[in-house]
Simulated scan of single mutants.
Amino acid sequence: MFKYVIFDVDGTILDTEKAILKSLQKVLKEEGKDYQLEDLRFALGIPGIETLKKLNVTDLERVHPKWSETVLEFSHQVSVFQDLENVIKTLSESPVRTGIVTSKTKQELIDEFEPFGLSSFFEYTICASDTEKHKPHPEPLLACLDGLNANQDETIYIGDSIYDMQCAKSAGVKFALALWGSKTTEGFESVEFVLKEPKAILDLIKI
């Protein structure tokens, strides 16, 4: 059905929710700002800089790198979602071409994603450092389409957040909700596909 499959990373390939939210909570507390984890959930799916701006953090050049370093303290709580590694390897052995569009910076990808050894299975990656505008704006996804020489009709973007869905719709690309990461369909009523488990990805391309 689809010839190009593009993935988000956090909450889609990697289960990073606890690491992201706990590290953010810790850094904010050190900055004199107390938040419950639930109040920080909006941070999932957007660049760290944008999160800190929404939290009215002023010294971004100091606090953002500090947060990136603190995330690594929680790396033991990050894992690849069950069965997803096998699905990614299966895709890489098929005619389907794969890419990544993530809100992580290039350095965050190096520190937080590359240790899992999955980078080589993706042909093209767009991170927050590669575009001026970020999700939910379509620019990152359009840049990945360009890099893969893909057209919208044959492409699906797999993600777990409202920002991912909005990015896909704005780019004219079909969207598949990774339910293992989002844990809810609330707010996603208009999505084309709801994937209950990673293996369902293979049904999209009829492997």
Rank of each mutant, 00 (worst) to 15 (best):
F122V: 11
G11Q: 10
F188W: 05
E17I: 07
H134N: 09
D111G: 01
G187W: 11
F121W: 13
E73N: 06
D153C: 12
Y124I: 09
K106I: 09
I49F: 10
E50K: 15
V9E: 02
I110E: 13
I158M: 11
C127S: 15
K89S: 09
V57P: 01
Y124F: 15
W67P: 00
N56M: 02
D15K: 03
S79T: 12
D160R: 11
E85H: 09
F74V: 00
K29N: 02
L148E: 05
L72N: 03
A150R: 13
C127E: 03
L145S: 08
S120I: 10
I126M: 03
T185E: 11
F81M: 02
R97E: 08
A19M: 06
S170E: 13
D111S: 12
E197D: 11
F113D: 00
I126W: 11
L145Y: 09
V9L: 14
Q82N: 04
M1T: 14
E38I: 10
Q77A: 10
G99A: 12
P136S: 10
A43K: 04
L142G: 01
E132V: 15
T155A: 10
L52N: 00
I100S: 07
K26G: 00
C167M: 15
E132H: 15
D34M: 00
Q82V: 07
D34F: 02
G45H: 07
I201F: 05
